Amino acid sequence: MGEYGSLGIFLLVALFFPVMALGPAFLLQPKKPSPQKYIPYECGVDSIGSPYVQFRAGYFLYALLFIVFDIETVFLYPWAVEFRMLGAFALIEMFIFVGILVLGLAYAWRKGDLAWK
């Protein structure tokens, strides 16, 4: 079968299941296009004006900061689970890790990125 045989089988299975689930739904769906179906619609009220809305960059900055700190704190969970077996070296390493996170948070705070303007 070779080194990549199991990978190929996995890829085929990964492609097979979505096609088998979505294929019949696509073939059997009712298709009655009309101009009414292509208009923008929100909450039962026809839209007024352009659907393009410009958001402030602050929203995206909050989202990025949340993702960074959320992903970084996920690394705390395995450490907490195995804390007793890891010893003092891991404790010191975790304090360094959390210190870097705190420095990043302090930097964002001092820069004013956390102020809701």
Score class of each variant (00 low, 15 high):
residue 33 P to M: 02
residue 51 P to M: 06
residue 76 L to A: 13
residue 47 S to Q: 14
residue 27 L to H: 06
residue 71 I to C: 08
residue 21 A to I: 11
residue 72 E to C: 03
residue 68 V to S: 02
residue 45 V to N: 06
residue 93 E to F: 10
residue 62 Y to D: 02
residue 92 I to L: 08
residue 76 L to C: 13
residue 69 F to R: 01
residue 59 Y to E: 02
residue 46 D to S: 13
residue 97 F to R: 02
residue 55 F to Y: 08
residue 39 I to R: 11
residue 89 F to Q: 12
residue 15 L to E: 09
residue 25 A to W: 04
residue 17 F to T: 14
residue 74 V to Q: 12
residue 60 F to G: 05
residue 61 L to N: 10
residue 23 G to V: 01
residue 47 S to A: 13
residue 54 Q to N: 07
residue 31 K to L: 13
residue 20 M to C: 09
residue 40 P to K: 06
residue 59 Y to T: 01
residue 15 L to I: 15
residue 64 L to W: 09
residue 53 V to F: 10
residue 78 P to M: 03
residue 83 F to L: 13
residue 67 I to P: 02
residue 73 T to A: 08
residue 15 L to H: 07
residue 25 A to R: 12
residue 68 V to M: 11
residue 6 S to T: 14
residue 17 F to P: 00
residue 56 R to Y: 08
residue 9 I to D: 10
residue 97 F to M: 07
residue 74 V to D: 09
residue 25 A to T: 03
residue 72 E to L: 10
residue 65 L to A: 01
residue 57 A to G: 15
residue 79 W to S: 14
residue 31 K to N: 13
residue 76 L to W: 14
residue 104 G to H: 03
residue 82 E to V: 07
residue 85 M to T: 13
residue 12 L to N: 09
residue 51 P to W: 11
residue 93 E to K: 08
residue 53 V to S: 06
residue 33 P to S: 00
residue 101 L to Y: 01
residue 30 P to E: 15
residue 22 L to C: 04
residue 98 V to K: 05
residue 27 L to C: 11
residue 61 L to P: 00
residue 86 L to C: 07
residue 88 A to W: 05
residue 92 I to F: 11
residue 73 T to M: 11
residue 32 K to I: 06
residue 101 L to A: 08
residue 69 F to C: 01
residue 62 Y to E: 04
residue 6 S to M: 09
residue 52 Y to T: 05
residue 81 V to G: 04
residue 95 F to I: 15
residue 40 P to N: 15
residue 20 M to K: 05
residue 73 T to E: 07
residue 17 F to E: 05
residue 56 R to C: 09
residue 27 L to A: 09
residue 81 V to Q: 13
residue 68 V to P: 01
residue 8 G to C: 13
residue 102 V to D: 00
residue 95 F to S: 14
residue 91 L to T: 09
residue 72 E to N: 06
residue 103 L to P: 00
residue 65 L to D: 02
residue 7 L to K: 04
residue 68 V to I: 14
residue 100 I to W: 10
residue 75 F to T: 03
residue 66 F to D: 09
residue 13 V to D: 04
residue 57 A to L: 12
residue 61 L to S: 12
residue 65 L to T: 04
residue 68 V to E: 05
residue 81 V to E: 15
residue 84 R to I: 12
residue 48 I to L: 10
residue 10 F to G: 07
residue 73 T to D: 01
